[in-house]
Design a binder for these strands. Structure first.
Lengths: 145, 145
DNA sequence: CTATTTAATTACTTTAGGTAACGGTCTATG
DNA sequence: CATAGACCGTTACCTAAAGTAATTAAATAG
């Protein structure tokens, strides 16, 4: 494990971009027929993490425009994974919330889609897994919200 | 550095997927007007790494259907970043190869698109950068080639 | 030598995103 | 306090990038 000189941000950036892109592409390729499209799934996970939100807040969070989020939310409503709730304080707004089926779908989808990755990780040493665990935190921190 | 129990592959998979996805999404969001679309850029980098290839081989490599690759290659030809070359052994096939402008575009695009990430990495501690450097290797290993 | 297979392409469809504009609701100021 | 403007979700329409089906031309197997 040579550590001659500190890793320079510039060269690391390229390495990290390539590594992250490859993993994401591979994971996308692993996505089965049964799984929800990524843009729908991330909305479920956002609601699971932050609780009920308006479509506008979801759009901001996911970095898409409001009309796109309207479509995504409507698709999820049709699947029965979320429901829309009127807001009595401000009648312009609505609240989107997970249904029990939505919660279940998160669990099932994660299980299916992480099966491949879990297998790969299982073949690494505990030290390497520890490295990746720390890296996961750093990635999230870098990416902000 | 608390290491009470070994990081389980199952929970790590979820963390890693989220972290990698967020970074990639953020990087995509940072992509400037001047940069090529990702699907075009990755073809340039593939040609740079593996040398001249047929459209079919590129399609396999990128996990995309042949008609999509035909379009991507044609767009790159119009930009002058690659050129098509007839194959005399098998006249059904063509070879796609980088032009000098294509090579230059890779360099320039990488420089531009890594500017943001380089800045983020610069604000981390050398230890964290070391963690990410190791993680980059692991990500590439996991994702295969 | 014909029949099948293969490679790239063309034509058309699907998916997921964007912008512009609208309609109902809230809010601030004149 | 009335109304002008801002805000929120939505609708209508457009664009980008991928897919499938069908086409053309070339190689190869029987």
């Amino acid at each position: 494990m040579s550590q001659a000189r500190p890793t320079s941000p510039g060269t690391l950036a390229g390495e990290l971009r390539v590594g992250a892109n490859r993993l994401v592409r591979k994971l996308r390729h692993q996505r089965g027929q049964a799984d929800l499209p990524e843009h729908q799934f991330v909305v479920l996970t956002a609601l699971n993490k932050f609780g009920p939100m308006t479509p506008g807040a979801l759009a901001d969070l996911e970095g898409v425009r409001p009309p796109s989020m309207t479509r995504t939310v409507n698709a999820l409503v049709e699947h029965g994974f979320v429901s829309k709730l009127a807001n009595d304080q401000d009648k312009r707004q609505i609240t989107v919330q997970l249904t029990p089926q939505g919660r279940n779908e998160i669990k099932e989808t994660r299980r299916r889609r992480d099966a491949w990755l879990t297998k790969q990780l299982g073949s690494l040493s505990p030290e390497d897994r520890q490295t990746l665990a720390q890296a996961s935190e750093l990635l999230k921190r870098i990416a902000g919200h």
